[in-house]
Write a protein that binds this DNA or RNA. Structure first.
Lengths: 114, 114
DNA sequence: TGCACCAGTTACGTCAACTGCACTAACGGG
DNA sequence: CCCGTTAGTGCAGTTGACGTAACTGGTGCA
């Protein structure tokens, strides 16, 4: 039973880690600098605490970011990208550039009236 | 009711189009050149005809690729990226580079024995 | 005594992407 | 007459990312 689940292709590997819509957006926010849990939640309108926690924990376990909890009341937790996490910047930049350059028609569900 | 569903951020827009794991991989294959339906299916082990059709049709409707059906028997259909589709190459390249450079530990589910 | 605060956690349900299998049309070759 | 070929389609079912609602813990403030 070798690790069949690890594809050779770099693109496929990347996609293993960035499944849902939020995974990538969390990295995008963290590229702006270290952020607290609540700051991330505000920066990502619509995300649930559940999802945010899950993704954050996943990325921490994979070495993309660090979690620093300060033993204070009320608690304060700061998330910060590691070097590996920061190395995602070119990918995000490329996505951003494409998303900005592509015509709106590439994103609308169909010939969407009004 | 304006188009609320179209985010400003380029990254978020990109993610609107590339939801599932296959969407991106189909583009990756098409970057190698025009391909027939069957060629794509072989190049993407595990994909179902259903999924392939759906993604292809979506991308066609969004202007990322063209679908050319030759009125032959047996039928032959060729898919080819448009300029817009080809402009995704930098994004895919960045993903590939990251996926290749990142340590395996970033992809394994946990401290995976054996 | 009780509420607010932050950063979660737990239980449950939803939704869309995806899968497998069976099936189709139309024709050439045996 | 039947088989094989290509590019799908339809139906049923599964998976996993995600959402909502309720709740926790320890302290400051009223």
């Amino acid at each position: 039973m070798v690790d069949v689940d690890l594809p050779d292709c770099g693109v496929a590997r990347f996609l293993l880690l960035f499944d849902g819509p939020w995974a990538t957006l969390i990295i995008r926010e963290l590229l702006h600098g270290p952020q607290r849990f609540g700051e991330l939640r505000e920066a990502l309108p619509g995300i649930s605490a559940h999802t945010l926690t899950n993704r954050l924990r996943l990325f921490e376990s994979r070495g993309l970011l660090t979690r620093t909890a300060f033993p204070e009341i009320p608690p304060r937790v700061v998330y910060e990208l590691t070097d590996l996490g920061r190395s995602l910047r070119p990918v995000l930049d490329a996505m951003y550039a494409w998303g900005k350059a592509a015509p709106v028609s590439a994103f609308v569900p169909a010939s969407d009236p009004a």
